[in-house]
Simulated assay, not measured.
Amino acid sequence: MAGLGDLESRVMAALWDSDVPQTVRAVQSTLRVERDLAYTTVMTVLDNLHTKGWVVRERDGRAWSYRPARAREEAGAQMLRDLLASLGDPRGVLMSFARDMNTEESEFLRQALDQSRPGDEPRKPGRS
């Protein structure tokens, strides 16, 4: 999954913030609060996002309706995985990140890791 540019990120945010698929016109209207964009600009960005796999589209009359291909959190996690894979030493990066975490972040991560995944054996206290 390729990363996103600034305008692509704002278009994705507009889609993630909506509970229903959005037409180009609806996304353009949402983004107009920040910046006046041409219809064709928004259409091109949505088409590019579709090509990159970030959005899925379906016919809505004569127009297309777009929705995110995955939840915001899933997309963010995939972007982190892609970034780590590109760095050459993902373990070193993760260790550096973990050392810089504050207490609240560290505790949250510890609790998340302690939750068992489907098919995993429950973790015993004191075991890594």
Rank of each mutant, 00 (worst) to 15 (best):
V24W: 08
M43S: 03
V33P: 01
K52I: 00
R35Y: 04
T23V: 13
A13C: 11
R35L: 09
V45N: 04
T30Q: 12
V45T: 08
S9Y: 11
T40F: 09
T44A: 10
V20E: 15
T44S: 10
M43H: 01
L31W: 08
D36A: 12
R25D: 13
L46H: 07
V27N: 00
W16S: 01
D36G: 04
T44F: 07
P21Q: 05
G53F: 01
P21L: 08
V24Y: 07
R32C: 03
L7Q: 15
T40R: 12
H50Y: 14
G5M: 09
G5Y: 09
V45D: 02
L4D: 10
L31Y: 05
D6E: 15
M12S: 00
A26G: 06
L15S: 08
V11R: 13
D6Q: 15
V24N: 09
S18I: 03
A38K: 10
A26H: 06
T44G: 09
L31C: 03
Q22T: 00
T23D: 12
G53S: 01
S18M: 05
A26V: 03
L37A: 10
L49V: 04
V42A: 02
R25L: 15
T41A: 07
S29Q: 10
A38S: 11
Q22R: 05
L7V: 14
T41L: 04
K52R: 09
N48L: 11
L37S: 11
L49Q: 07
H50N: 14
K52Y: 02
L46S: 08
W16F: 03
M12E: 02
Y39P: 00
D6K: 15
R25S: 14
T23I: 14
Y39W: 01
Y39G: 00
L37Q: 11
